[in-house]
Simulated scan of single mutants.
Amino acid sequence: MAGKMLKPQKKLLEQDHVLPYKIDVEGYLFQVVIFTKLGKISGITVLRSEDELASKEEALAVVQKLQKYNFYFEYLTKRTSIVKERDSTVAERIEQAQLILNNNILFGEKLQPEIDQLSLALEVYKQQQHKMDIYQEDIALLNEKIKEQGLIKEEDWKSAEDLSIAFMIAAYAQTIYLEATRDNRAALAKWFHQNQKQIPAEERKALAKMINVLSDTNGGLVFDQIISLLPLLEDGLLIDKSNPLPKRAQEFNMEYEAHCRFYKPNTNKISELIRNE
């Protein structure tokens, strides 16, 4: 039994978790067991069968593949833990309130360019969020499929890679447009509070609703949380941040796809956790 094999591997106060799917390496199926202590990974054991440990070399190859799969959705995992589902809720609220920003007479020549930039950024946010919601559902279905079949098949690797690329491309476009219009949001709020008495009642009500959606306790908070993850999106990539936003997004698309297709995990740290000796 696997439990008998794991007993010598398990240390004091550790919990063991057997992954619900096997990893295929050169035609052999391997089971991965993760040991945790106080919520952190403390060890990894790879089984070739229920009563046989894999060799250290085999274990390292298995863990590398596992690292690669985790890499595909590292950003999504981090974003989900920080932003949760509020990004989709904010997108819906923006959809309901943003019409007022299309009023080209209300804001005056000085503020209008900033409003136009903000309106574009919010449109990008909504469109990319809609895409990411769909991709996230597809990723959840893929993970459920893998769990049910108990194995990551070759076509699943391709699906995971393609979904990672699509999700990251959408997330990056969304993030850089939000980052570029932080000051625009502040300028709109300041202008509203200074001029609200002169704004016609209907427009004032609509604009107050928009300001509330973008406030620091609502959309603004979510936007800042998304922007805080920009370093994770750009990690390992060479992006010229001085480029105009469309070109910067295009550059990311090419860089990340190449990075993802040829990604090789660094096993220096993880190899110390492997208990296949």
Rank of each mutant, 00 (worst) to 15 (best):
F35D: 00
E58T: 00
K131P: 05
R48F: 08
L111F: 09
N103A: 00
Q9T: 07
L47F: 07
Q15E: 12
F30T: 00
L47Y: 07
Y21E: 07
L13R: 15
K7V: 04
R79S: 14
I94N: 09
F30G: 03
R93N: 14
Q31R: 10
I134R: 12
V46W: 02
G39R: 08
Y28T: 14
G43W: 05
N70H: 13
E58R: 00
I105Q: 12
Q117W: 08
A91F: 09
V63F: 02
A54R: 02
K126C: 10
E95M: 09
G27I: 05
F30E: 04
Y75P: 08
F73S: 07
R48V: 06
P113C: 12
S42I: 00
E58H: 01
Q117A: 15
L29P: 06
D51K: 12
A97Q: 06
D24T: 10
K10A: 05
R48M: 06
P20M: 05
K7D: 09
Q98R: 13
E50N: 14
L6P: 00
Y72H: 11
P20E: 05
Q9E: 11
L99C: 02
G27V: 05
I34V: 14
D133C: 06
Q64D: 10
I44A: 07
L53G: 04
L47G: 01
V83W: 03
D87R: 11
L47Q: 03
L47E: 01
I41E: 12
Q98V: 12
R79A: 14
L6H: 06
K65L: 14
